[in-house]
Amino acid sequence: MKNSILSILAFAAIVACKKTDTTNVDSTTDSSSMTTPADTGMMTNDSTSVSNRTETQSTLSDQDKKFADAAAKGGMMEVMAGQLAATNSTNEKVKTFGEMMVKDHTKANDELKSWAAKVSYQLPTGLDAEKQKAYDDLKAKKGADFDRKYTDMMVNDHKTTIADFKKQAADGTEISLKSFAQKTIPALEHHLMESEKTKAAVK
């Protein structure tokens, strides 16, 4: 009787050990199968993403970079000066023109930023020294002096900007940046026409 009980206990212990071993093997297999493919996929995607950004960046010519930088700084200047005109001028024509500059150039600036994000290009985030001085000088003007200074600036700036955009549309290398320049030219030409009208109205 005692021998029978011992035999039963020994058999139960063996079965329990086998069950534990099987559970451990399954657990190890599951853990491995869950982590390996995920890690491998992540590495492949990251590598591809970096490669694409590098390839796009390398397609930018000196002309592309020069244009993008100038367009970014010029666009910021147009918005900042337009905000001054909309709040500081006492002339309704100047105010209306300034509001149009803020609206249109904010839209163009956002399009340029979107392009830069896609190609991983770092645009300037502030005005250069020359534009900052021009802005500070404008900000110090009041009344009719402000109106004359602002409208003179807008006429001259838009003549220069149109020439820059036409050069990029003709000589640029990066296709989407060339397209941005080309499609923005009509709006800039309209701004030049309106700035000339506004300038004539404040003389």
Rank of each mutant, 00 (worst) to 15 (best):
F11H: 08
V50P: 00
A13D: 09
Q83I: 10
N24H: 08
S32I: 12
V102H: 06
D69M: 03
A10C: 07
K167F: 01
K133R: 12
A71M: 04
D110I: 12
E78N: 03
E78T: 02
I5K: 15
T184Q: 05
K131W: 02
D64H: 05
N109C: 02
I14D: 10
V50R: 09
G82T: 06
N3V: 09
M80A: 15
S120I: 12
M43P: 12
P186M: 00
A68I: 00
V155G: 06
E78M: 06
L60G: 03
E174T: 10
T151P: 00
K178I: 04
F97T: 02
N52H: 15
L138N: 01
G98K: 00
T22W: 13
F67K: 02
G75K: 03
K118A: 08
I162M: 06
A163T: 09
P186A: 10
L127N: 03
N109H: 07
T173Y: 01
T40F: 14
A201P: 12
T44G: 09
H190G: 11
Q122N: 13
R148G: 03
A38H: 03
S176G: 10
K2I: 09
N109Y: 05
T29S: 13
S7Q: 10
L123S: 07
K183V: 09
S51E: 15
K73E: 09
R148P: 02
A144M: 05
Q168A: 03
N88A: 06
K73R: 12
P37M: 03
S89Q: 03
T151V: 10
E111Q: 11
D104N: 05
K142T: 10
T20D: 11
D62Q: 08
T173D: 07
N52D: 15
D128W: 11
H105A: 02
S114R: 14
L6K: 08
M42D: 05
E196F: 03
E99F: 06
Q132M: 13
K66S: 12
T22A: 13
A200N: 11
A117Y: 02
G172K: 08
M77Q: 05
E55F: 13
S89N: 04
S4F: 14
P186Y: 07
V50C: 03
S179Y: 08
A117S: 15
D21W: 14
L177G: 05
K197T: 09
